[in-house]
Design a protein around this nucleic acid. Structure first.
Lengths: 171, 171
DNA sequence: CTGAGACCTGCGGATTTCGCAGCATCGGCG
DNA sequence: CGCCGATGCTGCGAAATCCGCAGGTCTCAG
């Protein structure tokens, strides 16, 4: 797709000064490497090197560092329906008391794929992935509502997933 | 992690009859292969084969088929904050008229990472990934609200992402 | 019975990964 | 200024992996 060098000026890897929040800053070349791996997580290092203008070994070292730092991970992602999870829902939660502790309880539940603290009329939003309606009902009514601090919940059952990308940084 | 064979009885790959919705059904061995690749998308085929009880070539063929069928994809996923996207939000949308066409409009926006049609008090829910507050404001107020059929929106700005997995099927 | 289709194995040859020994650059420091 | 450690890149062989292909086996349909 990209045919040639991405590195212009200041593709300086020493650009690894920390930003305010302590997350490592990425230079243009590392971004380009990530883009390559977002297209195909198994693309050979040599091919990536050719695309970004680096040797095979250099790409390998960078990728390893990105993985070690937790900046990215290379994984298989699946279509939930195909793998047997037929019901999904987003659940908004109103909390009284410590939001963080409720969030931790949700995080430890296998069915909660996604847990985020929000500003707005919900304190927490959670994505639930279940096998069927019974399973979903049990998770929401029995398990989530049983967590101390959960005042009320509102569910949004998925009717149709229209888009789901993993292409952050590719814009 | 998993030390030995997963395939017991009926790990029958001929089990590829279609389920009602037309998605191919997966047998136990393919599931096990997916689990391996969810732990590490670059794990060698031979290592996977040893874990699931198949030859290297067989694993390779299965993986290729799973990719071709779109059952899974192997990609790099990144932490949005590290890659420079500091503001995220979930937006619930009330629609009048054709929901599908609004969903399509949202889908074509780069900032919409996730678009889903829902049952409940929202017709659509969308996850937005932005660089900063200005960007987020522009996307929600100028772009989303401008889509014909959008009656109103409600935003939930992310304060803290507590959990995000890609481990469907690993339960 | 026969043929087609799906799946697996085994095997070389091409490719990729891996580890390591140089280099070069940069910033700190006496 | 010269030295030094840290960092990052390159360029190797050696080892491991990937890849294509030629069989086998099994099942189902005709």
């Amino acid at each position: 797709m990209h045919s040639e060098v991405v590195a212009s000026r200041s593709a300086d890897p020493r650009d690894s000064r920390e930003s305010r929040n302590g997350t490592p800053h990425l230079d243009a070349v590392s971004l380009a490497i990530i883009e390559q791996l977002q297209e195909d997580g198994r693309r050979p290092y040599a091919a990536i090197g050719k695309a970004v203008g680096l040797s095979e070994a250099a790409v390998r070292q960078r990728v390893q560092k990105l993985l070690d730092q937790g900046v990215m991970q290379i994984v298989a992602v699946t279509d939930p329906l195909t793998v047997g999870f037929r019901r999904q829902a987003m659940v908004g939660i109103h909390v009284e008391g410590d939001v963080e502790s409720v969030a931790d309880a949700l995080t430890s539940m296998a069915e909660c794929e996604y847990v985020v603290m929000t500003a707005g009329s919900f304190d927490l939003m959670v994505e639930i992935v279940c096998e069927d309606d019974d399973h979903l009902l049990e998770v929401i009514n029995r398990r989530i509502r049983a967590i101390p601090g959960v005042r009320s919940t509102e569910s949004f059952v998925y009717l149709k997933l229209k888009k789901q990308t993993y292409m952050w940084g590719t814009r």
